Amino acid sequence: MIEAPGIPLTVIAFLLLLGPLVFIHELGHYLAGRWFGVKADEFSVGFGREIAGFTDRRGTRWKFGWLPLGGYVKFAGDMSPASQPTADWLQLPAAERARTFQAKPLWQRAIIVAAGPFINLALAVLILAGFALAYGQSTTPPVVGAIEPNSAAAKAGVRPGDRIASIGGTGIERFDELKMYAALRPGERVALNVVRDGSVNTLPLTIGTLKQADRWGNAYQIGRIGIGPAEPVWSKVSLVEAPVVGVRRTGEIISMMVDTIGQVITGRRSVKEMGGPLRIAQVSGQQLSLGWPEFVSLIAMISINLGFINLLPVPILDGGHLMFYAVEAVRRRPLGVRAQEWAFRGGLAAILALMLLVTINDLGAFGLWRGIAGLIG
């Protein structure tokens, strides 16, 4: 175990991580709005009181808030949480009203809202494509080489030379896909299909659980089958192939997130594993201390998280707005303002509850609750 990075490096790393990602996210909204002729009144990185900023020639106030945990773009005429026309909006001059968010067709409003999450995903694709171009990619086939004694694979009857066709109903084409599937499912019982002597055999497999700790002492557990590849293969990636690899890896990470959320909802994974801003700050400092490649990899991961989470159909998030736009497209009219406002209040309450939960988890991971218990005891 090595010494953890100090607080100054952790704070710097956190700001270098979150600030650009929030800026990129809001820039997506801003550029899409500008493309469709919507005026932006404010562009803020961070919440709360302004600590620095300027106003450009288009009348947009660019500023930094004192709380660097998010940001926003406030478009002209966006006077209610539901982004619906209000009495104040109707009183605007016609020319000014035409440049407001509410005046735009439904499809343009949807693109403006979706642009933020999608630019985060695009950034991740670009980073992952760059890594693939620089370092290549693993194309190791899922053929079994070594088998660890007393491992999950050994107990299931896996043999050297078996080719893994699928696990838990998921097709396997590369050895990395098998490792990724197992890592997320410690202790789960699944069906493993292997090709042996030209025929497919189905083996019942209980994925093993491996408890690990990183170099900073952070403990976690992963699933492990206990096999190694017959012949590792590492391939170069061309400039044309790199974006395809970036898209595929982004999709794989999103799939992992969906699986993880499903495990938390069904109780197969503890909510204590969920982390928040404090945990992200800690990890960002640790990754920056390892070097820029590791830190940029973390940026890609958090960017995918930011894009994916914002697309969830939760009122107050971008996905919640898109959900209401979908309803509006089907009904040919929007939901009532009051119904939307109540939905947004519920979404805000849910987000605040989640933030409280992950903050409690973060403080627990830092040992605060054990320390308090020790003082009381």
Rank of each mutant, 00 (worst) to 15 (best):
F54Q: 13
A32Y: 10
V38E: 14
D318M: 05
Q221H: 02
D318K: 11
G319W: 06
L27A: 15
L128H: 00
A353K: 07
R57H: 12
L288D: 03
R99D: 03
S270Y: 05
T260F: 10
L121V: 15
V73C: 15
I172W: 02
G346V: 10
S284E: 13
Q286E: 15
Q282C: 13
L356H: 13
L357H: 05
V296S: 08
P117D: 12
G171H: 07
S284I: 12
L123I: 11
I316A: 12
A353T: 03
L123C: 10
A122Q: 05
G246W: 05
A13D: 00
M301N: 14
V237T: 15
V247G: 00
R215C: 02
I119W: 02
S297D: 14
T209D: 04
V296I: 15
P232R: 06
K236T: 11
P81T: 13
A349V: 03
M274T: 09
L317N: 06
R174A: 11
Q287A: 11
W342S: 01
D56A: 07
A165E: 10
I304Y: 04
V296K: 14
P141S: 00
A349W: 03
A122D: 04
A353I: 01
L67E: 04
S44V: 04
G226V: 08
R49D: 09
E42S: 09
G307V: 03
F295Y: 08
E252N: 14
A191C: 08
M256Y: 03
G262W: 05
I172L: 00
S166G: 14
T10W: 10
G116M: 12
I12W: 08
T10P: 04
